[in-house]
Design a protein around this nucleic acid. Sequence first.
DNA 1: CTGAAAGCGCTTACAG
DNA 2: CTGAAAGCGCTTACAG
Lengths: 339, 339
Amino acid sequence: MKSNVTMKDIADQLGVSSVTVSKALNDKEGVSVELKAKIKQVAEGMGYRYNTLAKQMKEGLTYNVGVIIPERFTGLTQTQSFYLNMYQSIAKELEKSGYYGILHILNRADEDKLNLPRIYNEKRVDAFIFLGQINKTYIEKLQDVEIPKIFLDFYDEQADIDAVITDNFYGAYEMTNYLIKHGHREIGFVGNLYSTSSIQDRFLGFYKSLLEHKIELNYAYVIKDRNEHGAFIDLELPDKLPSAFVCNCDQVAHHLVNKLKVLGYRIPEDCSIVGFDNDIYATITEPSLTTIEVNIQEMAKQTTKSIVEKIQNNNQSFGRISVKGKLIYRNSVTKVAER
Amino acid sequence: MKSNVTMKDIADQLGVSSVTVSKALNDKEGVSVELKAKIKQVAEGMGYRYNTLAKQMKEGLTYNVGVIIPERFTGLTQTQSFYLNMYQSIAKELEKSGYYGILHILNRADEDKLNLPRIYNEKRVDAFIFLGQINKTYIEKLQDVEIPKIFLDFYDEQADIDAVITDNFYGAYEMTNYLIKHGHREIGFVGNLYSTSSIQDRFLGFYKSLLEHKIELNYAYVIKDRNEHGAFIDLELPDKLPSAFVCNCDQVAHHLVNKLKVLGYRIPEDCSIVGFDNDIYATITEPSLTTIEVNIQEMAKQTTKSIVEKIQNNNQSFGRISVKGKLIYRNSVTKVAER
DNA sequence: CTGAAAGCGCTTACAG
DNA sequence: CTGAAAGCGCTTACAG
């Protein structure tokens, strides 16, 4: 069980050349069936482990993909398991294709100073997946990056970079339709419209539903949930509450429900509330939240498929892929009360 | 900005040798200050990126560490962000030392069939961190693995493999002391004693506290929380409730609180309950849970430091490192009621 | 201070 | 079917 057994060692053992050993172990043409079997058997016996580095060097490919998550989405504060779950799914999918995902947390300083990850400068990865919205200026800086890259869970219209996103627009649209079907006409939205493209699109889907139903958008009902750094802020409620709120995510819906309960409102009797994401906050909220489930696995699958294709086919562009979510019906919505 | 600029290209550009370029870029001795500056400048100008593969191959080291998490700890079911958080901390720490963490989810089939991860057979990693308890037989199989390895968050007495764990024993001991100080004499424990070493140690810390206070252990108060596959089961409560329960983790404490509330008990007035981990379940439970905070960052730091040392110093052994947790006081404990 | 030579462990043409 | 030669992009002695 020596650790540094090479093909040459196996070759010497059998009195053949290392070329033949290479062919045999890789199941390539040009080795007799018997010799191939013999070689494999000896390799096994000698405890041979294939040295990927040599192949990588020959090809100039690492078979690693960098997955970059901005630090602000990863705080050790309980939340955001969404991104880690996504990373996990990606790691699994990549492995199926013979690739490996290297996680890099992009800290705020590097993001501000436009420092590219070291894994890039050391040629440790063949491509990048950016998971979670990054700064505008950093996105511009990415023009310099000469390997394939994909945005995941956000996109940028300026930069011509392929993206895989959840169908935020349609999800919020469907959700709002659902509320309207329940008689709601005064519906608020909770989220900072200038924070991320996801929130923006969810807002626009919400707005589209209002437009279709000829319901006027009341900006007094649009409530900011976070500051420009993405940190949650205290929710400022309007004097008069709408009969329902569409929240841009479950966590904020959770905050809102708790805040309203403290103020003496009953949910959903006095106010219906819906979330987005179907993360842990959807089920721990009392009442449990009607929400949109993001299809993490499908998103990971699409992302992996696309990035592998880009690596193998000359970085071809595919544009933007929207992965549909699914409406999950729970207990935070009721028919609008007669007033 | 050609992508495949090599040291040779830089050398040719300047009419020097690639050896000199190598020395200059690595800040080694033997290049004049002016030439070094010149070389660095030209490298920058040509968009040179260092090719780590060549160095890796020369050294026979990848500077990658495999982090293995058994699948059962990662289910996409909301929970277990603990392990992913730990992985994230490890990835960060490794990067500080010039290493990168490759996540591999060990699925049940591979675990049962004793298949070693492909990253091992392809020599893609220099060492392994096993995060979360694995099968006994798989642990035995690890004897064959000829690179450094560490167990994280569990250990095995048979296998002589170094481990970093949270101080389960002392944490539960302290917690139980705390309950006893509040007048509790009838205290239950919730957890399957045969499931993991963590649960066992927490139980034993709990038991030590009872012994020290001359309180008899009542097995009717020891409640199983999961089956042998680690899946949670329905909690079977004793006919007469103790005045307090030490739960082996926050999630189970959360279940227990909810179950007792449904049965009409008030927490903590009728029964005090404490958890372990200080994960999201500790704060979402109503009342919030008094618990032990596991120091994820410190554990990640110790693990990384140890594994890097093992890689660099001939796999030297360091035994077992216990990282102390911290008692977090919340609202799920009260003085025992007079009966 | 500078560089020619050899080598890390494979694979890819190409020749026999 | 089998193998000698060259090369992937560096670094490490060693010589000048």
